[in-house]
Design a protein around this nucleic acid. Structure first.
Lengths: 112, 112
DNA sequence: CGCTTACAGAACCGATTGGTTATGAATGGA
DNA sequence: TCCATTCATAACCAATCGGTTCTGTAAGCG
């Protein structure tokens, strides 16, 4: 996953409405009107959020009649998680220098 | 980790300069001037980015003489990773409904 | 004391974001 | 055919973002 894509994924996740949409989609595909229901927000606002998620690769969409269904695509989430796990060796309150060195050595060294 | 804090962490991670700063800090604490070196950007711009990282809890800072050193704080990264792992059951190309149901059952159910 | 270095803060700027309302296009149904 | 439903797009707006330059402040040093 390149840097630009990470920009989009993290930016998409930085909004609580979009995270809630993803959470909802984890329970199953759904159409715009139904997805919009829980929010005190207009339909075009939700459509915009869905487009942001789509651009980040976090959802795909397909039409059925007059409805468009959104489908969760988790792969970018996996890759973003993988990115963050580069920092796993700093987790946990205590680790001595040997631990850190070993952990660092074991890791694939990716930049960015 | 509450929703507001997730906003800040993901928003902080959504910028490539800030991700690069974190990567640099994973090699050790450093002061502003040195951190700024690799970037074609003014010192105040870097100071702003560091403040964003600090507000997200991703770094802490301490002064030493005229310098201020930034220190990586990985805990919010761990928590954000934890958040994303809610979607772990959707990773991997194949999984049948039983797998999904089991994975869902095993999971703590956090909202947002 | 006076100079330099390291950094933060303020003021400013253009671009982007997150929302709105209004409109239009495509589908399905009477 | 005509109408209703679903949704996207356009135009607009205020607020935020990411950068700039200029200035101020605090610490170290001659």
């Amino acid at each position: 996953m390149d840097s630009k894509q990470l920009d989009l994924v993290f930016a998409a996740l930085a909004d609580p409405t979009r995270r809630a949409l993803l959470a909802r989609l984890s329970e199953g595909d759904n159409c715009v009107a139904v997805l919009a229901e829980p929010f005190a927000m207009s339909q075009p606002a939700i459509s915009k959020h869905l487009k942001v998620l789509e651009n980040a690769g976090l959802i795909s969409r397909h039409s059925a009649g007059t409805s468009r269904f959104s489908h969760l695509e988790a792969e970018p989430l996996r890759e973003a998680t993988e990115y963050m796990e580069k920092y796993k060796r700093f987790w946990g309150a205590k680790f001595d220098k040997l631990d850190a060195a070993l952990a660092a050595y074991q890791e694939e060294n990716t930049d960015d």
